[in-house]
Nucleic acid binder design. Structure first.
Lengths: 153, 153
DNA sequence: CTGACTGCAAATAGTTTGCATGACG
DNA sequence: CGTCATGCAAACTATTTGCAGTCAG
């Protein structure tokens, strides 16, 4: 089951953090979006709802949520920092379209064998992993085929 | 076989780029280091050899080398952009120590099965992937065990 | 009430751009 | 020699910090 706005709010309270309208707004924005959002994206979206909010507050809220493990950071070549709601499975991975930038998530992956082998070979104690695939999504593939036929500029 | 400074120099010439002392210096630094270096790291190292070099030149050289596919970029939470020599296998992956930041590379991984499944399920045409493991290297594990016994501050 | 939170402004870090000078081929 | 490359300074973007006022609990 996915983390909901209410659940996150409850966790915040439990941890002794105040639930301000600004935090609610940031939270709502992240919960409503399935994409990964940069701080600036979130700020833009949140402004509509809470016009007075400052970008600084968005940064601080993101930092807080990330620290509590409620949202996850994504690092890719394009946007260096973006966030999305954490999936309940604990971790998940990304499939990023090089055309339009859309991010699809997937959770099922079995890297345990590889992780074990690496641990043996390198002496690392492996704690986590980040796996990202890059490619072209259905939509971009279709549209580039179309424009190829038309002679794309 | 690993890419050498000479080989890269030859490739640059082939591609019609000039081989200036500054580019040589940046190249030498990257080739001599097995770690991933940030632009600032490289700048610092290169300065010793070529005191007059500008940070801008380092950026431009890195961009050039990355464009030619001779070095690869790494994106991780800590340092957002760092570079290392490309491994001959085409692509490789990283094992990053959360303690000291050391990066070990590995090349052997078989994600083709997973990639195929994802392609089927999502309609993406998968072109590339990025796999990073995070953990604690042998050295950090040893030293944290030691400091744990001493009562780490 | 009161400490945590916010917003502003300014500081900082990282990266890019414009332009005159210099050097590789 | 001509053109590409360099270095400086300035512009720009992204993020962090200091501080006084505000508000959730």
């Amino acid at each position: 089951m996915r983390l909901t706005e209410k659940k996150i709010a409850a966790i915040l309270r439990q941890e002794g953090y105040k639930l301000t309208p600004q935090r609610r707004a940031v939270l709502a924005t992240i919960c409503l979006s399935r994409d990964h959002l940069t701080p600036a994206d979130i700020y833009e979206k949140v402004r509509h709802e809470s016009p007075g909010i400052g970008l600084v507050t968005v940064y601080r809220t993101l930092e807080l949520l990330a620290r509590l493990g409620l949202i996850c950071e994504l690092h890719s070549s394009g946007a260096c920092r973006s966030y999305s709601l954490r999936r309940p499975a604990g971790h998940h991975h990304h499939l990023i379209c090089t055309g339009c930038g859309v991010v699809a998530d997937f959770t099922k992956c079995d890297l345990s064998e590889l992780a074990e082998r690496l641990a043996r070979e390198t002496g690392f104690e492996i704690e986590d992993h980040l796996l990202e695939f890059a490619g072209r999504c259905q939509t971009c593939r279709t549209s580039s085929e179309r424009s190829a036929k038309q002679g794309d500029p």
